[in-house]
Amino acid sequence: MPARRTFRSAEHADLIQLVRTIAADELAPRAAQAEADEEFPRDVFRMLGEVGILGLPYPEELGGSGLPYEVYLQVLEEIGAVWASVGVGVSVHALSCFGLATRGTPEQQQRWLPEMLGGELLGAYCLSEAHAGSDPAAMTATARGDGDGDGYVLNGAKAWVTHGGQADFYKIMARTSGAQGDRHGISCFLVPADTPGLVSDVPERKMGLTGSTTAALRLEGVRVPMERRLGAEGDGLKIALAGLDAGRLGIAAVATGLAQGALDAALAYAQQRHTFGRRIIDHQGLGFILADMEAAVVAARATLLHAARLKDADLPFSREASIAKLVATDNAMKVTTDAVQVLGGAGYTREFPVERYMREAKVMQIFEGTNQIQRMVIGRHLDRDNAGAITRV
């Protein structure tokens, strides 16, 4: 039973129907085998770029569609319900374009953004390091002047890079000044994948999202011209963190879609499977589990859309983004686990997709800031924000 949605315009409703059709016709038939084969579906991202999905949340003057985030996130949900690796990839690509779209010069935007939003170029976001994940200010990767004043030389390593080894460009944060822990000495660079010295390691062997390549990235004397720096020197961490709130909403949307997909699979099974002369959905014990799953999905969606509406109204939404990421991903873990339980022994086999959904849900609680970090963020906001403010939009 697909999610029930309401929109302010027929255009937005038509878009969701188009995405739902693409998901059913193009993504669903490939997802299980591609995940089993650990195949990265690069052609899928080109196709999504061609139909305009990769540029949906960016302004029309930059080559996007100018879509409200409230609608864009529901697009991500529809994709995530069928193929989470692709949903995550779309969200990460949008995050990798964020610095150029918000802090790039008009010349930089005109030169690179059209191909990025059109899907010709696939992006990756490089903030974390092996010992600087939740604490990005602890990064040690450096970008030092090349001596000629024409650019920088990058050295170090980045960890957990989604699309590592598959991306066409990398948005890389590296230290241009200051010591480890200095939040003001980090800068942001847009680096082409074929730059000499940019080396991707063997992809990580993961328990889920195996169709989404994750790899460490080594920076071995990578020379980057001055024109590839985004924003001013030292603004890198600001650029990186500014995009994370939107990125957290993207992951929350994919997690909500994943939970919806698990619920749909469990519901279909419960309506068809019979025990003791009745469908198993007619047994109160199973019916209550399904009811709780539905409540969890709907609650996550409502939380997500509330944060999106704040963003669309240009109001602060950082606290709500963390709440949405926390609620949606925790709920996705619970819903996918319950989906396996509904199917019983069958749910533990690869004949049905719910075991894959359960494996995929786990990482949603970890990336874009662990859910423990989200709780810290929410607590800090509670301490300083006026939580009871009423704003007329």
Rank of each mutant, 00 (worst) to 15 (best):
A266Q: 03
L267H: 13
A268R: 14
A268N: 10
Y269D: 06
Y269V: 04
Y269P: 00
A270R: 03
Q272I: 01
Q272C: 12
Q272E: 15
Q272N: 12
R273Y: 12
H274D: 07
F276S: 14
G277P: 01
G277T: 04
R278Q: 15
R279F: 09
R279I: 06
R279L: 04
I280D: 07
I280L: 12
I280Q: 03
I280E: 02
I281D: 06
H283F: 12
H283A: 08
Q284C: 08
L286S: 12
L286C: 12
L286F: 15
L286Q: 09
L286M: 15
F288I: 14
F288T: 14
F288Q: 11
F288V: 13
I289Y: 03
I289M: 13
I289G: 07
L290V: 15
D292T: 03
A295W: 02
A295P: 07
A296R: 10
A296N: 10
V297F: 08
V298S: 14
R301G: 02
T303E: 14
L304C: 11
L304G: 11
L305Y: 06
H306P: 01
A308N: 02
A308P: 09
A308Q: 02
R309V: 10
L310C: 05
L310G: 05
D312V: 11
D312W: 07
A313K: 05
A313T: 08
D314E: 14
D314Y: 11
P316N: 06
P316K: 04
S318Y: 02
E320Y: 06
A321V: 01
S322T: 10
S322M: 08
S322A: 15
K325Y: 06
K325C: 13
K325M: 10
L326V: 01
L326E: 13
A328N: 08
N331C: 13
N331V: 05
A332N: 01
A332P: 02
A332R: 05
A332Y: 13
M333H: 10
K334A: 15
